[in-house]
């Protein structure tokens, strides 16, 4: 396929890959937001975040199996199923993330930065392997219940699912933006991220704010998990590891700790991957490598990510 692309540039194919990249990027961005929010508030790389995402996929799979969904739904059945899965996914991942913070990170909050990283890795192992015990080590097919129709514009095909993923992601991002910038709790979150001790002196409940951050980060990953299993039509106990790695890369690319940066990074990495799959020889195998290579290049020129602040050195 790439040989064909190399000989004559196909605009339709190019835009199709951009469209694929945007859908994938929307999912990456949702997961990246969880990384960046947690990092922004307690400077921790939450290594278990990818697995929190994966838990949403396996729990919603169980719900879908319990409901015996095995055919394409429409109308109220579809809306109801989507709502139910989203609520289950969001509660699973959000709750799990809060629990993890309480058990594994809070006791180590004052320790040097590498130490909570290790407990995060431990939690990640636990989450992956409990999932494996429950769902076996196989890739499990996820029932297709979303209409598979698509809109065609010229040679460009946009499926209804792609549109749903994009709209859902944008709605959640806008909601998050309003929450962090317009509400009291959002202000407490930003204050804690800036200076926890000063925020505490101003009457912000630090523990509650940090828990809330984990809840929101987890909830976004949960929503991403619901749509990802519909998009990939499969569920796998290690899916969170790989996707988490990419989402973390996206968060760093945008400037870790920066919410807009995570969204930008997510979409960029999604598009880069999709284009690499198409245009790099043997692209599927190299696509992730290309994403990392571009990340390294960007960080060489912008060491704090695309939207990260250049913080002057303090002595």
């Amino acid at each position: 396929m790439h040989i064909l692309a190399a000989s004559s540039f196909d605009t339709g194919l190019f835009f199709q890959q951009i469209e694929n990249g945007i859908t994938l990027g929307a999912i990456y961005a949702l997961v990246a937001l969880g990384y960046t929010m947690v990092y922004g508030i307690i400077e921790l790389i939450n290594f278990a975040h990818g697995d929190v995402f994966m838990w949403s996929t396996i729990v919603t799979l169980s719900v879908a199996q319990a409901l015996h969904i095995d055919h394409v739904l429409g109308g109220f059945a579809l809306v109801g199923t989507l709502l139910l899965l989203l609520i289950v996914g969001i509660l699973t991942s959000g709750g799990l993330n809060v629990l993890i913070e309480r058990v594994a990170y809070r006791p180590l909050r004052r320790a040097p930065r590498l130490i909570p990283l290790i407990s995060a890795i431990g939690v990640s192992f636990i989450l992956e392997n409990v999932a494996q015990l429950w769902k076996t080590a196989n890739v499990i097919a996820y029932p297709v219940f979303f209409p598979t129709n698509a809109i065609t514009i010229g040679s460009l095909t946009i499926t209804y699912l792609d549109i749903f993923i994009f709209v859902l992601a944008v709605a959640l991002m806008v909601g998050l933006n309003v929450f962090t910038n317009r509400t009291k709790m959002g202000r407490a979150m930003r204050a804690t991220a800036q200076d926890p001790e000063a925020a505490a002196l101003m009457g912000v409940n630090i523990n509650q704010t940090i828990s809330l951050t984990f809840l929101i980060g987890g909830a976004l990953a949960g929503a991403a998990g619901v749509v990802y299993s519909m998009y990939a039509s499969s569920v796998y106990f290690l899916s969170g590891f790989q996707l988490g790695l990419i989402a973390f890369t996206a968060a760093v690319l945008g400037g870790i700790g920066n919410i807009q940066g995570a969204v930008l990074g997510g979409f960029l990495i999604g598009i880069i991957e999709a284009l690499a799959t198409q245009y790099v020889p043997n692209g599927l195998a190299w696509s992730q490598g290309v994403a990392f290579a571009i990340l390294i290049l960007i960080l060489i020129f912008r060491p704090s990510g695309l939207l990260g602040q250049q913080v002057p050195d303090k002595v």
Binding site: I45, L245, T249, A285, G289, L295, I296, L299, G305
Partner: peptide, 27 residues
């Protein structure tokens, strides 16, 4: 190339380097 990077930015670049090495020998 990573001399200017600090902390977690360095972490992700080294992580990328590790993954690249595996993807390289794989391909």
């Amino acid at each position: 190339p990573t001399l200017r990077l600090r902390g977690d930015y360095l972490a992700i670049v080294t992580l990328g380097f590790g993954e690249l090495s595996r993807i390289f020998v794989l391909n």
